[in-house]
Design a protein around this nucleic acid. Structure first.
Length: 258
DNA sequence: ATGCCTAATGCAATTAGA
């Protein structure tokens, strides 16, 4: 069973790249972020034609998340986090698929710091941590996957000293990520590759991909009830080099069948 | 400190991304 996460940066502008990647790698379940499209603009038919059912939580222009599955239709269990302000940004969707609860998330960027956007990021993080505590207490298989907009450690940044004041690497954001992890989640990619320099995002600026000037900000976290099934994890780095590609690369995990 | 690039909106230039 392969589960992936991919920040597509515009699902309609990215559709040829997304379809090519899905057909070449055939992940079973996929969390998508930054759809940048309203619900009515979601490409349901094009995904259905290659075998993927979906649930989605869109938003015009910004944000937007979805869960795809080719192993049975995802059964949506929630959209948005408990306590989200009104109107809410579309950043969380959750569904049950094949005996696994999948939480797909797009955590706010938070720049500039300090400022209201940074405050919004920390408040959103607090709501995620509260919800994650409820989830992990249920002692069931859960995967929390998405664009966390956090580099957990200096190992996850090409030039950590340049990022210390940035909203993706600031001490209070890394501390929030650590609080989440302390609940008992497993960082799948780092567990499989404990010492490797491995990135999931490369800026469009300054030829960042070719220079390997990247960040590791897309994560798949596993609850204790599923962590023992982890056998592999990887970044589909080559996809970042395709024409008209996203600034993120897809990340995936391989699990033994439950 | 800012631009470098890209997407969406909507048709020029702005907002947002990270």
């Amino acid at each position: 069973m392969r589960i992936a996460t991919y920040n597509v940066n515009g699902i309609n502008g990215r559709l040829p790249v997304l379809l090519r990647w899905l057909e070449e790698t055939r992940p079973d379940i996929v969390c998508l972020q930054e759809l940048k499209a309203g619900d009515e603009k979601f490409p349901e038919a094009a995904l259905g034609a290659i075998g993927y059912d979906a649930v989605w939580h869109g938003q015009k222009s910004w944000n937007g998340v979805a869960i795809l599955s080719r192993v049975g239709p995802p059964v949506e269990t929630r959209r948005g986090l408990p306590g989200d302000p009104d109107p809410a940004q579309s950043r969380y969707i959750e569904a049950a698929v094949n005996g696994i609860l999948i939480g797909g998330l797009y955590l706010p960027n938070g720049n500039p710091r300090p400022g209201p956007k940074f405050d919004y990021k920390l408040a959103w993080f607090d709501r995620l941590i509260a919800h994650a505590a409820d989830l992990i207490a249920a002692d069931v298989p859960i995967v929390l996957a998405g664009d966390y907009n956090v580099m957990p450690t200096s190992q996850d940044v090409y030039k950590p000293e340049r990022w210390t004041e940035d909203a993706l690497f600031a001490p209070e954001v890394r501390a929030a990520f650590a609080r989440l992890m302390d609940q008992g989640w497993t960082d799948a990619l780092r567990t499989i590759h404990p010492d490797e320099t491995i990135y999931t995002f490369f800026d469009y600026f300054r030829n960042a991909y070719a220079r390997n000037a990247g960040l590791r900000i897309d994560h798949l976290l596993l609850s204790p009830a599923i962590a023992g099934r982890l056998v592999d994890a990887q970044v589909d780095r080559d996809v970042r080099g395709w024409e008209k590609t996203s600034d993120h690369a897809p990340v995936w995990i391989e699990l033994t069948n439950g």
